[in-house]
Design a binder for these strands. Sequence first.
RNA 1: GGCGGCAUAGCCAAGUGGGAAGGCAGAGGACUGCAAAUCCUUUAUCCUCGGUUCAAAUCCGAGUGCCGCCUCCA
Length: 475
Amino acid sequence: MSLKIYNTLSRTKEDFIPLKGNQVGMYVCGPTVYNFFHIGNARPFLIFEVVRRYLKYKKYKVKYVTNFTDIDDKVIKKANEMGITFSEVAKKYIKEYFQDADCLNIGRADFYPRATEHIPDIIRFIQGLEEKGYTYVVDGDVFFEVSKFKDYGKLSRQNLDDIQIGARIELDERKKNPYDFVLWKKAKENEPKWDSPWGAGRPGWHIECSVMSTKYLGESFDIHAGGEDLIFPHHENEIAQSEALTGKIFAKYWLHNGYLNIDDKKMSKSLGNILTIRELSQKYDGSVIRHFLLSAHYRSPLNYSLYQMEQSKQGMETLNNLIYNLNFLYERNEFSKEMTIESKKLLKTVNDMEKKFLQAMDDDFNTPIALSTLYSLAKETNIYLNKEKNKNKEIIEKIIQFYEQFGNKILGLIFKPNLTSPEQVQKKEIEELIKARELARKNRDWQTADQIRDKLNEMGIIIEDTIEGTRWKKY
RNA sequence: GGCGGCAUAGCCAAGUGGGAAGGCAGAGGACUGCAAAUCCUUUAUCCUCGGUUCAAAUCCGAGUGCCGCCUCCA
């Protein structure tokens, strides 16, 4: 089975063939660290890390890089508001980033380069462009001259002559072309600054990504990803400056995720309709938020609503229940070696779902279909668990593995498997109560049985009677 | 003005020529001492009109509606 990826550059699904053997270099535009990140920001962080998980599953050696933009207008503004330095702001929100990323079970990148740690690299890069004649300087600002790069617009399919000048852009009289962009920005008073051949200043926005991606992944690398709003001008400009300097293809595959909307509007700081992960995680488990973000294909728009979150919560509960139930059974260890018709049927379902899952992921990371296989298998498994008296250990193990490998490792949904491992003391107490209730039930003393159940409920324990005996879980 | 996306059940969401996946919610039922968990049943003129085709949710044309990029933005 071959992996197909939609490439923004060609606007088609292409076979994925890495530049060098089975090694994959991947760069995802990371956050500007001046605030908690919101659920819209979370989408690319999460989905492209799932891409990485899947590539690893496919035995690729992936080098995954994501940056922190730790110096720009917003960081400076925040520093002034808080009365601390810009680097303290960055430090704080990098820490907060990791807390929220961990909550969503977003795996760590291999490198987290920061703009301010690469100033010399950035200066060298700009000097290279200067030597090749792509730049001009006006009052200490260094600009990239877009018209000198013949492929400008190839990613966003914009034609320089056709872009309406001034549609929404404020004209900077000093620019030769309105789409020329700043590589190096002269420092204003009281702003953080670094020395450079063009005077004291700081890097422009686009340059850091070009510099740091090529530094860690080479002049040409495989995958560059980010939100679709970055296509123009950010990624277009990255291509321009990188390919102008090296004369080589910058990134082979460009992946962009669709927006996350809220009330059918884009979630953005300027509209003030943002919802941070920090806020949301007060109410929902990280795996529920994850489930929600994976419930639509990554290139489709996805609308946030409370109702939707509740749907994801319910869905996760169904899956969690299955995992509970499987583990309960597994701990009992009362299996049959017999391979009945029902067992064979279920085995076939597992194999079918496995195949379907992989096909879905191979087709441009179709996570909604991948998720659906988790549910289809859950239903078949529940039917088996209810009906079949001769439960087959091999199959139960295979199903547990399916959820571990696909649900947990690839999709990153963490199931809550350890239903029966709270503190030992309590566990003992619970089991004694259950025994007492069993006895009462045997004697058809429903009143006592129900009293015990109520007591357990107060302890946060839910009782479920099954043909294998009473199982319990903590919620 | 230039570029691009979307329209499938009450809700979410797959599906790009030949059986309309999956989930959530609702209703009814089964199981249970009662529950819980689970299962079963039930819901779609695929935005409209026209065209191509033996065959269209899927391709083509027109229309309607919604959204995004071209300003910092994931």
